[in-house]
Amino acid sequence: MQDILNIQELTCGYGNGFHIRNINLNIPKGSFAGIIGPNGSGKTTLFKAISGNLTVKQGTLLLTDKNIADFSYKERAKNIAVVSQTLYVDSIRVEDFVLMGRMPYHSRFSFFEHKNDYEIAHHYMKLTGTYHLKNKLMTQLSGGEQQLVDIARALSQEPGLLLLDEPTSHLDIGHQVQILNLLQKLNTDLKLSILMIIHDLNLAGEYCDFLVMMSKGKIHTIGSPKEVLHYQHIEAVYNTIVVTETNPISGKPVVLLVSGKVLNQNHHINR
């Protein structure tokens, strides 16, 4: 199967500061992939390299077999849509916000949206369950609703690859599952390739079919959730003692934490 992303020996970073080095990564089309790793491990840097916000210093980064640097700004926005982590704060109407996703399809001189743009925006608002919010202001929405609207905006770009930076971080478990179920549906129904940064290892294991574990600017492990979410990998990367189990319903790996007190009382326990 063709790769949506093909990264070889990638090095990139900020000035003379933090760099990610020697990244090798292939993500097949139609994947639902997750990037995990502790704070400061280079997840966001890798993410920025893929979204084109950081220039590649060494190595190659191919998006559907074409070098990312060869894309124009507009072309790139037609192929990759990004849902960032920061919540949105500006008083713009929800519908207008979603319509912004159509920008890459307009020339500088086409002044108004076409009927077709409205249709596409409305379609994805319905798909994300946000159509009824269309006349509200973004500032009037809850965090979960803003996230859904932002996903509708990203989908209106009709990308081949959807990047999300911690799409569930500000949300309660109900909304977390709502967002991830939506992404799963998009992945299955629309064959949309998804790559997200996610901190919650259990959600990563439950939803992703492919995980990239990063540590200190390098890739530590790549593989299926079962392979990556092994307690030895997690303990090495996060420096934390964990217990891994299997979810009795889904059969996916589950990561459990143990408090320091209990660990001290049970120091005789060996795995």
């Binding site: 507009k74 960032s84 770009q157």
Partner: peptide, 10 residues
């Protein structure tokens, strides 16, 4: 929406 988001919109 911010410079970075503007870049993502092409």
């Amino acid at each position: 929406l911010g410079e970075e988001r503007a870049i993502h919109l092409g």
